[in-house]
């Protein structure tokens, strides 16, 4: 899964971004997106059935 990204010219930075780290982000971003969405809907289901009362908002959302 990690291997199939096209190689395009771009990333220029004063710190070393790390080729592996740049490639991995796309994979992690996608998986994390799915995990976070799944968690969100799971919490909503829990709320509907009264298992979850407290709001799940953290500082990151408040900003």
């Amino acid at each position: 899964m990690l291997l199939d990204f096209p190689l395009n010219p771009a990333v220029i930075a004063y710190i070393d971004p790390g080729t592996g780290s740049i490639i991995l982000q796309a994979v992690v971003g996608a998986i994390a997106g799915i995990a976070i969405a799944a968690k969100f809907y799971w919490h909503r289901v829990q709320k509907i059935f009264g298992f979850r009362k407290k709001s799940d908002i953290d500082e990151l959302d408040e900003d």
């Binding site: 190689l7 010219p9 771009a10 220029i12 790390g18 080729t19 740049i22 796309a26 971003g29």
Partner: peptide, 8 residues
């Protein structure tokens, strides 16, 4: 790294 830019 300069050759790599997957879309994010």
């Amino acid at each position: 790294a300069a050759l790599v830019k997957p879309e994010l």
